[in-house]
Design a protein around this nucleic acid. Sequence first.
DNA 1: TACTTCATTGGTAACGTTTCCTATCAACTT
DNA 2: AAGTTGATAGGAAACGTTACCAATGAAGTA
Lengths: 340, 340
Amino acid sequence: MANLTIKDIAKICGVGTSTVSRAINDDPGINPATKERILRVVEEFHYVPNNAARNLKLTENNAIGVLVKGLNNQFFLSMFRIFEEELGKQGYTFVLKEMASDQDEATVAEALIKEKRLKGIIFMGGMIENPDVTLKRLDIPYVLCTVAVNANVRHSASVSIDDEKESFRIVDYLCSLGHKRIAIITGRKNDYAVGGLRLDGYKRALADYGIPYDANLVGYMKDDIPDFTAKNGYTVMKELLESRVDFTAVYAISDLTAFGAYKAISEAGKKIPDDYSVVGFDGIDLTEYMTPSLTTMAQPKEELAKATVKMLMQEIDGVETEKKVVFDAEFIERDSVKKI
Amino acid sequence: MANLTIKDIAKICGVGTSTVSRAINDDPGINPATKERILRVVEEFHYVPNNAARNLKLTENNAIGVLVKGLNNQFFLSMFRIFEEELGKQGYTFVLKEMASDQDEATVAEALIKEKRLKGIIFMGGMIENPDVTLKRLDIPYVLCTVAVNANVRHSASVSIDDEKESFRIVDYLCSLGHKRIAIITGRKNDYAVGGLRLDGYKRALADYGIPYDANLVGYMKDDIPDFTAKNGYTVMKELLESRVDFTAVYAISDLTAFGAYKAISEAGKKIPDDYSVVGFDGIDLTEYMTPSLTTMAQPKEELAKATVKMLMQEIDGVETEKKVVFDAEFIERDSVKKI
DNA sequence: TACTTCATTGGTAACGTTTCCTATCAACTT
DNA sequence: AAGTTGATAGGAAACGTTACCAATGAAGTA
C-alpha cells in the first residue's frame, strides 16, 4: 500500500529512472516496446507520479486560479463546472477563491499566485478599474471573464458580453411596448461593476426614446445584504413600491433580484405582468419556472466559459490572440412583460 | 521578481537555511530575536515558501478533497463556502470533484487521493451502500456528509440529519392538518440515496395515521433530467396532475423540486395552498421568496458543514471521537400549506 | 575494416524544503 | 578551574521527479 516511486518501477522493470520518466510522460527517445512494458507495470502496480516532486522539479504547477467577486451570484456557479471540465481536458487543475467586494484584485491575485504557484488566473465578476495598469505586476497570464472594466483596455484579455448594449436592448424593448415609467433595480450605489454598465444602458435607451431620467425610479441594492440576491431584490422592490412613485415596469439587473421583486409585488397585492412588467438579466435556469416565467437576457454561459479557458490557454502558450471577445446575449421573451 | 528561496533569505539574514525554516514554521529552538529578524526580512521581500518542495519533503499535502454526487443541488453549493473557510483556518486547501451518479465512490476517491495526495476526504450526497467495507481500502480519514448509508455503520464517520425522521415529521404535520391524500415527488426510482430515506419516512407517517400507501401518489424524478432540479419537479408534478389521481398535498423532496411543482400547479390553473398544499425540503434561501413562501424542512447547513470539517480534523489527528453526528432539521412553517 | 551515425539507455545533478545530527558558546555547577 | 548543561545555530541528507550528458551498441558508410 505504501506509495511506489519511480525508482521502484525502474527496479521492477530493470531499467533506469529516466526511462520510466520518459515512458510516463510520453517523451520521445524511447523504444516503443520498452515504453509499452513499463506502462504495463505502471498500470499493474497503480503507480501514480508524485505531483509535489514533479512540480518542484518543473518549478511550476499545472493549476489555474479562479478569483470570484460575488460567489453568491447563481450565474457564476453554473460556469465552474465548465471551467473544471475544460481545464481538466488540458491537464489543469483549478483553484477557486472568493474575494470580498472591497478587496483589491491585484493583491489577492498576487498572494494566490505565489501560494499555489498558479500558471494562469481567471477573474470573474466585480470591476477592475484599469486592468492594463493594475494587473501589470502579475507575472502570469490572466483573463477577465464578465468583469466590468473602464474603456480603453488594450493589453488585458477579456471575455464578456456587452453589458451596456444588452441592457439597452432590454429597456428599448420595454419602451417599444409602450412603457414610459421604468424602474430599475441596480447594483450597490458605490460599486460600479456590471451594475453601472447596465444602468448606463438603461439611461441611454430612455434617452433614445426621449424619456427623462428620473432618479426616483432607480433602486440601488443595499450594502448590508448580499448583493444580487433575492433578498436584496425584495427589499429594494418593496421600497420602490412604498415610495409611491409611478411606474409600469421594473428591470432587475439579475434574475435572482427579479425573483425577490416578484415577491414584493405579490405582497403589495399587485399582479405581474398586469400591474407591473418585470424583466431580469443573466438567464439562470430558474427563470423558466417562475410564475409567470421571467423575461430575461440570457448570458451564453457555456460559450463564455469555454472562450475564457481557450483564451487563457493561448495566453499561456504565448499565442498571439484577440484580446477582447464579446458575445451576444440572448433575449428570452416570456410571460412577465405586457404591452401597454 | 524571480521567486526567492529559503536560501536567499538565509543569505540575506546571514543565517543557515535551517534557522529560516525554524522561523517560518514556528518551530522551537530558535532565539526569539533571530526569529523576529528573519520574519521581518521574509515580510519585506515577500518570500512565500514553495509548497511543492514542502509537500515533497513532508510527503503529504495539506489538501482535503470534497467528492460530490449531484453538484447541481443548490443545497450543497451553500456549504462549500463554509468548507473553504473552515478548512482554510486549519491551513488546508480543498479540492472539489464532482462525480456522476453511476460512478463508484471508492474508485473515484482512490484515484483522487493519489493524484492530489489528499490528507482527508469528504463525501457529499448520493448513497454509499456499506461504507465500512466499501471505503475500507481508502487509507486516509474520510467523513460522510449528508450521504445516505445502510444501517449498521460503525467505523465510518458521518454527519447528517435523520432524513427518515425529518421526512416523517413533514408528512406527520400534513396529516395532522387533515390531509389524507398526499403525493410525494421523490428521487429517481433506481437510485436509493436520500430519496429512499425520505420516502421511507413518508410511508411510516402514513402508516402511523392509518392511511394506506398508494403507489399512484408517488412520482419519481426522471432519469433523463438532472435530478433535484426545478425542471424535474415540474415534469413530475405535471404528470401527477394529469394522472387525475386525487390528492390535496404534495411533498417535494427538495426545494428546487417544489419550485418546479409550483409552476405545474399554476399552469393547471390551481392555487397553492387552496387547491394543493406543498412542502419542500432542504431550506434553501430562495424558499422564503417564493409565492406563496414555501413551508420546508431546513437543514442546518452551517452546523453540518462545520461539524464535518471538525470531525475530519479529529480523524486526521487520530483523536478518538463520536463516529456519527446527527443534527435536527428545522421545520419552517410558511404559507404553502393549509389546514383541511 | 574502421569510422560515423543514430536510436536507446542509465547516471546524476538539480528543484526548495525539513530534519537529524553535530558544533558552538555562554552560563552554571562542583 | 574544570566539567556539565542548555540554548541556539549550521551542515547536509533526503523527499521523488526531470533533464542534461555521456555511454552503449547496432547499423550504415567509406
